[in-house]
Amino acid sequence: MRIDILTILPELMKSPFSASIMQRAQDKGHVEIHFHNIRDYSTNKHKNVDDYQYGGGAGMVMSIEPIARVIDQLKSERTYDEIIYMTPDGEVLEQGLCNQLSLKNNLMILCGHYKGVDERVREHYITKEISIGSFVLSGGEVAASVLIDAIVRLIPGVLNDETSALTDSFQDGLLAPPVYTRPPEFNGWKVPDILLSGDPSKIEKWREEQAFERTKQRRPDLLEE
């Protein structure tokens, strides 16, 4: 997979992808992540990428021209499966969408700032709009990092144990069950006996029951869906 990130703060974006699983995924060749500074495509001598909004009102708006230039340049080099805009009013990011996007080859992600981008960018360039929740951030970079992390970890070969992602919360519509590791007892707190039984069928049944109960208690909306 190749992911191109359009941002005015590339230095902010690089840190999340320079360690741990994201770095290993790049080192192994499973994903390429490229950063494009939108300011580099501004023809203004001050490299401005925003302007006052028509009609008045507080807050600046990201201009269409530099964004269009970088998108057109990248589209001339390859075909993109999706051009994504991170925005609070987009489709809420859920596991099913992450699964779908993990199967793509080329993704472009636009990180907004200020009051957002000129609406014509959204109308004529963007193919998918995604939100990570009902709140507003200073910019789309953090949201893009969340999206990319959620996608890349699903690519075969990224995780040491590929079945791990299949048992994560939400993959089967339920939250994941409790997990334990050594020691079997700490401060008098014991690991459930069933997990020490060595009986795979009983353990699996226990995990399914626990996943259902945890979902019922914490996210009953998932059961309704």
Rank of each mutant, 00 (worst) to 15 (best):
I3A: 04
G140K: 09
D81P: 10
E213Q: 14
M108S: 09
E65V: 12
I194Y: 01
Y125L: 11
A211E: 07
I130L: 01
V146D: 07
G140W: 02
L93K: 11
Y114C: 06
E123Q: 15
E141V: 09
Q95N: 14
P192W: 01
S102G: 11
D193K: 15
G57D: 02
E204Y: 04
V152L: 04
K45S: 10
C111S: 10
S20N: 08
T163Y: 03
K202P: 02
S201W: 03
P183Y: 04
V179H: 15
N105S: 14
E185M: 10
E162L: 06
G198P: 02
I64S: 11
S63L: 13
Q53N: 01
P88Y: 03
A19K: 14
I84G: 06
V146L: 10
G116M: 05
E91C: 04
E141C: 07
I126K: 13
E185F: 02
D172A: 12
S63Y: 01
L222C: 07
A19E: 12
H30L: 11
G157P: 00
Y180M: 10
G140H: 06
L222K: 08
A19V: 08
F212L: 14
P200V: 10
S145N: 05
R69H: 08
L159K: 04
Y180I: 12
P200S: 11
R207G: 00
Q73R: 14
T215E: 02
A58C: 02
V142G: 06
I148T: 04
S18M: 02
A144Q: 01
N48G: 15
R122G: 13
D199C: 04
S134D: 14
F17Q: 06
E123T: 14
T87M: 00
Y180P: 08
Q23K: 15
K14H: 07
Q23R: 15
G198M: 05
D149Y: 05
D4Y: 01
D27R: 14
S131T: 00
R219C: 08
M22L: 15
L103G: 09
G140F: 04
N160I: 10
G140E: 03
P220V: 08
V146C: 13
E82S: 08
V152Y: 00
A68E: 10
C98K: 11
Q210V: 05
K14A: 12
S134T: 09
E225M: 13
N160S: 13
I203Y: 00
D161Y: 04
G56T: 08
R2H: 02
R207F: 00
I21E: 04
S197A: 08
Q26E: 10
